[in-house]
Amino acid sequence: MHQTKNGRQITQTKPSTYLNEAVAIWFRDLRSEFRTRYALNAILMFAVTTLIAVSFSIGSFRIEEAERPFLYAVLLWIILTFSALSGLARSFVKEEEAGTMDILKLSARPQAVFLGKLLFNLTLLGAMELIIVPSFILLMAYQIKFPGFFIAMVISGGLGLAAGTTIIAAMIARASARGALFSVLSFPLLLPLMITAIKGCERAAVGIGTAGWPEVKMAVAYVIVMVIMSLFLFPLVWEE
């Protein structure tokens, strides 16, 4: 119970749930991001400049038609992955730089912090994919035979990217050489996902071997494993 100045009481009705805490952190991060555009600017600037550079230098006609499905899938996932890497690490780094890490530790449970940050990174990545993927398809005249499979691959790959980068961001937030460490740790962790996503997008474009959606299943499995492992690992990373 909390007695306010005029005698009104604020009651702590029930303990907060993980979900309530995570949603509170998610909304706070969104509100802060909306005001500062701290991560969004970094992600979009990287994504747009790379996309324009790729579309002007390679375009839709400098690659043999037979090679397009594979090369376009590679280019798309390079743009998506490196754009994500340029901004998603900031969710934790910003807490460290602003000195708000300790107050968050005192206020929320570690798993709720991880889930809140993951939701925020998913939102950012979703917004980025909504801009980048259609633009890439238009600028490169990317022809896809199985759009449903392609969309599922982009979504599941995006989920994997967000899950992977969120836990790496938490691990590097207090390190001195954050940028280098983030790249070094991200490479082995995200490589299997990238290879799967490239293969999946290639198959969606060619229209062969999509039965059973193997790459989508693989990416979903990656997300599940990554989130569960992160929920166990994060309290160790979070607490000093």
């Binding site: 907060s16 749930t17 805490e21 509170a24 706070r28 602003a98 708000t100 206020s107």
Partner: peptide, 26 residues
């Protein structure tokens, strides 16, 4: 001194956030 609040939020928004995250009905 080392504990900082969220500079990009208002005082009221900071308090509302800490209420929500701590589960204080407020």
């Amino acid at each position: 001194p080392a504990l900082s609040l969220y500079d990009e939020l208002t005082g009221l928004e900071n308090m509302e956030f800490f209420c929500r995250v701590r589960g204080v009905a407020c």
